[in-house]
Structures are given as C-alpha cells and as structure tokens.
Design a protein around this nucleic acid. Sequence first.
DNA 1: ACCTGAACACCGTTCAAGT
DNA 2: ACCTGAACACCGTTCAAGT
Lengths: 195, 195
Amino acid sequence: MSTAEPTIVTRPLRADAIRNRAKVLEAARAAFAEHGAEAQMEDVARRAGVGVGTVYRHFPTKQALAEALIEERFDRTIAFVRDLLDEEPDPWRAIERCFEYCAATQERDRAWAAVLALMAGGTGVMGPREHQMRQLLALEEQMIGRARAAGVVRQDLTATDMPALFCALASVVQAGGRNWRRYLDLLLDGLRPQG
Amino acid sequence: MSTAEPTIVTRPLRADAIRNRAKVLEAARAAFAEHGAEAQMEDVARRAGVGVGTVYRHFPTKQALAEALIEERFDRTIAFVRDLLDEEPDPWRAIERCFEYCAATQERDRAWAAVLALMAGGTGVMGPREHQMRQLLALEEQMIGRARAAGVVRQDLTATDMPALFCALASVVQAGGRNWRRYLDLLLDGLRPQG
DNA sequence: ACCTGAACACCGTTCAAGT
DNA sequence: ACCTGAACACCGTTCAAGT
C-alpha cells in the first residue's frame, strides 16, 4: 500500500499557515475556474487576502497550484464514478452519465477542461496524477466490462480508450461552450456495437 | 465578390521589405510548428535574421503572425478537400481521408493543432478565418451529401457537425502524439448509419 | 515558522535613432 | 519607407526584512 510520491516527513503546520493555505486554495479555485491557465498569481493572492510570497510558500509554482486543484477534481470524479457503479443499474446509461458528468464539470471549470484536453498522452501533464488516473481507469474498466457483458457496447472497447475520449470531449466543451451535446451523441454512437 | 475584411489600399512593398516578410513567415513556420503557441518573437526574429521590430512591422502582434500561418494551412486544407472531391470516388473513403489528412498535418505542426483544438466554438479564434471556414464547410457539405446519398453515413450528419469533430481530433493528436488512430476509428464509427 | 511586498527575470511590444 | 535594438510593461518567481 504505497502512493507514487515519496514519503516526506512534515511537521504539522502552524494554525495561521493552515488557514492561509485554505484561503489560497479557495481563491485559486475561483481564479482558475474563471480564467483557466491564464489565471494570475497576483490575483490569487489578492482574492485570498495574502501576499504573493505566501502563495508561493504553499505552492512552489503556478503549475503546482493548478495541480492541487486538479487533484481535488480527480478525487471528486473518482467518487462520482464509484457511486455510479453502485447506483446505476443500466450499464449503458452509466457510461453515458459518466461522460455527461465530465462535460458538465468542465463547463464550469476552465482549468479542469484545459488539463483534460491535454491529458490523453499520459506524458507530461498526467505524470503527477498517474495514481489517480489508474484508479479512475480501474473503475472505468468495470463500467465497460458490464456494458460489454450486456452487449450494449462494441466488444473491442476498453478502458484504455477512455483518456482520448475524455480529451476530445474536453476540447469540444472548452471551445464550443454549450453545444457539446451533439458531439457527445456522435461519440457515444461510436461506442455502440458496430454492424 | 467581396472578402470579409475591409479593403485597405496598400502601396507596393519595397523590395527588401518583401524579402524580409518572406523570411519572417518562413522563420515563424518553423518556430510555431516546433513550439506551438509558446514560440517566442525574439526567436522568430533571430531565425529570420532580422530585428524584432521588423517582425512587428509586418505583423502587429504574435497572434497576427500565428494567424497568417493558420491562413496558409486553411488554404492548403481547402485545396486538399477540393481535390478529394474530384479524385476520390468512394464517398466514405473521402470522409476518412479528410480526417486522416487533418490528423497528419496536426502531428507535424503544433500551432495548427492548437488552433484547431480551440476552433469549434466559432467564437474568438475562428472569427478572422470565418470566410475560409465557410469555404471549407461548403466543401464538407458536398462530401457529406454524397455520403448520405450513398447511405454510408448516418442520415442526420451535416457539415455543421464537423468543426467539433476536428476540434476533438486536434486535441487528441496534440495530447497523444501518435496513437490517434484508434480514437479516429471510434469517431468514424459514430458517423456510420446507426442501427 | 511564517508572512510581506519590493525586486528580479522573462518575453511581448513600442519607439527613437539610423539607413 | 523600412530597419534596428534598447527600453518598457506585464506577470511568474525570489528573497531580505519583518512578526
């Protein structure tokens, strides 16, 4: 039972540092959701009511700050898919709802959409999130397995197809705003059993 | 017979200005293909063997320079699709080759992929290329029309579906490097007549 | 131990001086 | 009329001084 990251021994943070860290994350959520990758560190600091130096004390680079937010999103997505496997009896509908959830969250969070639009490669952006990525893929493997067993998706569909599909959907959502539904319909039809 | 842009009366350029403009474009092609949107103006100037000021004299902003390159790509793509309509007798194969051409060019040109990955919205990035976009869509309308008539694509497919599909493909190519083929297969199957 | 914000670095853009 | 490159602006990042 080990995570991918090396274990770093850290003393507990001082009370004010804990508060500041939370304020920075809260401010960053708003700034990145609104402006995507163009969000500015100075703006994050202002929204949080701290100096820029404090932002950098908690997160060494803008990239690192963005990744902390991405990590939260990943966890929520993993939780959502896990619930879906429990609650949704229709195996096809589960897949559909999974994509719809992704599109809907991306619509409200430009940073999340931008990251997903670049993740399919596995290289670069996704390196640090590899552990979560594996968790998510394992859940999707189950989801797809059920659908295959029920004969509602093409037999050659696997979880390894999913990153590219989420990547594709993300860029459509990011670019097109609210009319991603039609694209999603075409995408989903490509996953159906093929004549 | 009018283009979208207002007519601007320009005296002919001086001979050295013509040469410099060409050198800048040439240098920009290399720089943007290699680095995408992160290409640097200083680097373009250096590759062209001119001062930065000269780059700015011919193209008012980095964005404008990038757009000039995009315009070239658009023209080549339009020419390619036009030829395809003449040369490719199989209506399904024409659609397939159109997507393959897009993916292949995007693989060699990061800037082109980046722009396409953001174009589906019609807003923003595509504004200045609206005229070319319309030309391209008109050709795709023909391409899809033939395919519909031959019954090899779903009857509800239209040219207006294409921008989102190219956008999606672009982000997969941009992110995933060389394994876009599988994604394209799923995409194409979504365009087939649906049972 | 943590915070602050002025200072530094980098890159897009401008403009005074040159041909 | 066009070219050049030093100077300016903006934003990510650092660090000396403060509590």
